[in-house]
């Protein structure tokens, strides 16, 4: 089963013919993802990477039956692209682009939700179901097939987390990079519920960071709803207050959103919390041998 995407998922690429879109669409196809076409306005009718290009998402959907879109358009056009996808009946938009204005994302997310379209990102590595479907920019080879679900705000920590899990002899069912921007699509809560319901997932790794309170909400949700073991790491235990650590979200302000606070809430919810990403694999081994 896995969650959200699998070998049968049909994917289009918005921003298909751009350099980033081209490179990563190709990588995804090599991984085995069913990229069925793409959208670039005014290039409709052409062929790119052996797949058809359409002017609009509506056309692409009606011609290919795609249900998922991978979004690579430049930051200023992200909101428009996401709303177009929602309007065309796409079920899930995976937004890779970094630097989309926050105001735009408020509008796009609200519209997507109204239309029943799920979103992942922006500013994220995407989603991968090991050996079946990769929609994003992560190196596929790290994600060995297995039964551990992974949710992470950070891109490279998604890789590190998967790597640690696989080194201990486990593997990944589905891994989702949710992004660290102020407005994001699917978050811990929804994804935890999906992994809980997935019969191919035995345990969940949750990687968070300082700033905001998504991890605190997740802790409350885990306490009430999640029976599978969860291992968590929160990046930024050593980050000073008031300094922005790269991600827009990674800032501690007014004592809220510290790593200590989040770790305590997760521990209280029965989560196995580790202090370094290097401990993730061992922790999975420990919780699964109980």
């Amino acid at each position: 089963m896995s969650i959200l995407v699998n070998k049968d998922t049909k994917v289009i690429v918005q921003g298909f013919t751009g350099s980033e879109g081209t490179f990563h669409a190709q990588q995804c196809m090599e991984y085995g993802t069913q990229i069925v076409g793409g959208v670039t306005p005014n290039k409709g009718g052409q062929e790119h990477l052996g797949k058809p290009v359409f002017n609009t998402v509506k056309e692409a959907v009606s011609q290919t039956g795609a249900t998922v879109s991978m979004v690579f358009v430049p930051p200023a056009f992200v909101a428009d692209a996401v709303m177009e996808a929602a309007d065309a009946g796409i079920e899930l938009a995976v937004i890779i682009t970094e630097g989309a204005p926050v105001k735009d994302m408020q509008m796009a997310k609200a519209y997507a939700t109204k239309r029943g379209m799920k979103t992942i990102g922006p500013n994220c590595p995407g989603i991968i179901t090991a050996d079946e479907c990769k929609i994003g920019i992560m190196p596929g080879s790290i994600f060995k097939k297995g039964r551990i679900g992974l949710i992470s705000k950070s891109g490279t920590l998604t890789y590190e987390g998967a790597n640690q899990v696989c080194r201990e002899g486990f593997g990944i069912s589905t891994a989702v990079g949710i992004g660290g921007d102020p407005i994001i699509g699917l978050s811990y809560k929804q994804l935890l519920a999906m992994f809980e319901a997935d019969n191919e997932t035995d345990a969940i790794v949750m990687i968070g960071e300082i700033g905001g309170d998504l991890e605190i909400q997740a802790a409350a949700f885990i306490k009430e709803n999640i029976t599978k073991p969860v291992v968590a790491f929160i990046a930024g235990q050593t980050a000073p207050k008031g300094k922005r650590m790269g991600h827009a979200g990674a800032i501690i302000s007014g004592g809220a959103g510290t790593a200590a606070e989040k770790m305590a809430a997760l521990e209280e919810a029965g989560v196995k919390v580790v202090v370094s990403p290097a401990e993730i694999g061992k922790a999975i081994k420990e919780v699964l041998s109980k």
Partner: peptide, 23 residues
Amino acid sequence: NGAGLAMGTMDTINYMGGTPANF
């Protein structure tokens, strides 16, 4: 590379008894 891993690296250094000089 990456903000999350950069913080995770600082945290690991701290955990091993060292102190990070920067992000």
